[in-house]
């Protein structure tokens, strides 16, 4: 009995060693594709073409990264994406919180009606062409706002925030109101500071959405100066893959001569991952919370 409590049995030790090694190995495997891209970004083209780059750079060099940083379209697209992500997330949070707060109050008149409207638009939308025509009439085509406005209120995110607000103790607000605080003041100085888990989660949802947004640009943007990074990346990779037609014939010899080497494609991906990569590890834990936040009502 003592033996078993103090020390683990041999079988159990072997099992643990095996288990841990297997799990560590599996965890590492998930990193392989990423490491492969990073290695390619720092390797010479010759080694990549020869298929000698796998997990670590060969013939270490920074040429590809430097090339990417000085590529005009990359710089422009990077700026557009950073702007859209930061401004878009801030505005989206403002709109979401201000929509969710009143809807979380049972005393709001017509609350159910408004909620149903929101849920309706979450399930059904006007469609692509009417949206395009709407943006055209509002003179929003080829403006930065065409990238920000369409996803400024996600009903799903709003419902998460609303459910969170509903869980907060009513007495805190009542105390503030008795002390003479207005509704806005209650929201911004009392409710928001105690809602950080949901704010962080939903902000991250929005930020990732904005950062990855690609479709709004395809639909509403034709100017190169407003192309976001994801569209640039997608098209960069696609254009090097679609050099030949269905019969294996090179469609455009000039394009084939200008083909972007793999190291530069990899470097573009690596550089464009940096911002989200910096934020992600620190905020990732909120993602888990985000799924469960507001799901249980007491």
């Amino acid at each position: 009995m003592q033996y078993k409590l103090g020390k683990q049995s041999m079988g159990s030790i072997i099992f643990n060693i095996f288990n841990y090694s297997l799990m560590i190995f599996l965890a590492c495997i998930t990193l392989f594709p990423f490491m492969n891209i990073v290695s390619k970004a720092f390797s010479s083209s010759a080694k990549i073409i020869a298929g000698k780059v796998f997990l670590f750079p060969r013939d270490f060099q920074l040429d590809a990264i430097i090339h990417v940083l000085f590529e005009p379209q990359f710089r422009i697209s990077f700026k557009v994406s950073v702007f859209v992500t930061i401004v878009g997330t801030l505005l989206a949070m403002l709109v979401t919180v201000m929509t969710a707060y009143p809807l979380s109050k049972p005393k709001l008149r017509g609350r159910k009606f408004f909620l149903r409207i929101y849920i309706f638009v979450m399930l059904f939308s006007g469609g692509m062409v009417p949206n395009y025509l709407l943006f055209r009439s509002l003179h929003l085509l080829n403006t930065i706002w065409a990238l920000i406005l369409p996803s400024m209120l996600s009903v799903f995110n709003m419902l998460i925030v609303k459910n969170f607000f509903e869980q907060l103790p009513e007495s805190i607000e009542e105390a503030a109101i008795i002390d003479g605080a207005s509704n806005m003041r209650v929201l911004f100085t009392i409710i928001l500071p105690i809602s950080t888990p949901v704010i962080a989660t939903v902000s991250l949802f929005y930020a990732v959405d904005y950062w990855n947004n690609y479709f709004s640009a395809v639909l509403y943007i034709t100017k190169q100066n407003l192309r976001p990074l994801q569209q640039y990346l997608y098209e960069l990779i696609q254009s090097s893959m679609n050099l030949t037609d269905e019969m294996g014939v090179i469609k455009d010899l000039d394009l084939a001569l200008d083909v972007i080497p793999e190291s530069i494609r990899a470097a573009t991906i690596v550089v464009s991952t940096v911002p989200i990569l910096l934020a992600y590890p620190f905020l990732q834990k909120y993602f888990v919370k985000g799924i469960t936040i507001g799901s249980v009502k007491s």
């Binding site: 940083l69 710089r75 990077f78 700026k79 950073v82 930061i86 550089v271 911002p275 910096l278 620190f282």
Partner: peptide
């Protein structure tokens, strides 16, 4: 964290 991210990204963009 947000500010750090902002600074780093603006640094990168400014650097470019």
């Amino acid at each position: 964290l947000l500010i750090i991210t902002l600074l780093v990204t603006s640094f990168i963009t400014a650097g470019c």
